[in-house]
């Protein structure tokens, strides 16, 4: 038996919106300590990893580990039934064939229920090695979204360079070439801060269209954390207050 109730259901709605363009069918792993999922995009360039702790739920019960195979596209359609102020409860029996999703609005007394059919997914679970990232950049999520969006209109690829003084996003395309450079900024206004933690400089190239898809999660968190290592995929991380973390991994491009 699994049951989890989230008071701020909007968070779950936003999570589904933030991953639906990247992954299609996903195994959701339920454990007594929380909910997690890991899935690659169809071209095996990016990987989504979500971890939600039971502590963030108003009520959480999972007697055993369970795997719930879900079509994210269909889950997104069901989530559209939810009002932004709804509480969301997820329920599944042992050996379940469907996931029951209940939306409740205590103010308007409206309740919506949907039984989403589960599917069997044969997906590969990848082992993500523990990595000591040599550059970690914490940046306002809205600002990072904007930078990626605008640069994508100029080039498909961005080169991210870090050093102890700044992080630089540079593009080169038919239109021309240029860069956005952000220095370390720990101003009093927290939302303006850009925090650089660089032990070793990194220079890598990435497909901007993936970054734009990841940035849908910017509504979940005021800050985006970029973790870089010269030999590893980029991690774009969004912390979800009191509940967990949504991470996207993106394999770098190599210059021709």
């Amino acid at each position: 038996m699994f049951e989890a109730k989230l008071t701020e259901g909007l968070i779950l709605k936003k999570i589904v919106e933030s991953i639906k363009d990247i992954v299609t069918d996903v195994n959701i792993d339920i454990s007594p300590s929380g909910i997690s999922l890991q899935a690659m995009d169809s071209s095996h360039v990016a990987l989504v990893s979500l971890n939600l702790s039971m502590d963030g739920f108003e009520h959480y019960r999972a007697d055993t580990n369970m795997v719930l195979g879900v079509s994210i596209a269909n889950l997104a359609k069901v989530m559209k039934l939810a009002d932004n102020n709804d509480q969301i409860t997820l329920q599944a029996d042992q050996e379940a064939t469907h996931l029951k999703i209940i939306f409740e609005n205590p103010k308007t007394e409206r309740t919506t229920e949907f039984n989403l059919n589960l599917i069997t997914i044969d997906s590969e679970h990848l082992a993500i090695p523990e990595t000591e990232y040599s550059s970690v950049v914490t940046i306002n999520s809205g600002e990072f979204s904007k930078i990626c969006k605008e640069l994508f209109s100029l080039s498909e690829t961005v080169q991210i360079t870090t050093n102890t003084d700044y992080v630089q996003f540079s593009v080169e395309g038919e239109v021309g070439s240029g860069q956005v450079r952000l220095g370390h900024n720990d101003s009093e206004k927290k939302e303006d801060q850009t925090i650089l933690e660089v032990s070793e400089s990194v220079q890598q190239q990435f497909a901007i269209r993936y970054l734009n898809m990841f940035n849908k999660a910017s509504t979940l968190s005021s800050f985006t954390r970029l973790c870089l290592h010269q030999e590893q995929p980029l991690v774009v991380e969004f912390k979800i207050d009191n509940l967990g973390v949504l991470k996207y991994f993106l394999a770098p491009k190599i210059s021709d």
């Binding site: 990848l126 082992a127 497909a207 995929p233 394999a251 491009k253």
Partner: peptide, 14 residues
Amino acid sequence: MSGQQSIMKFFGSK
């Protein structure tokens, strides 16, 4: 996509 590496190159199967 030219020059695009696969995520599977970095993360092995469990």
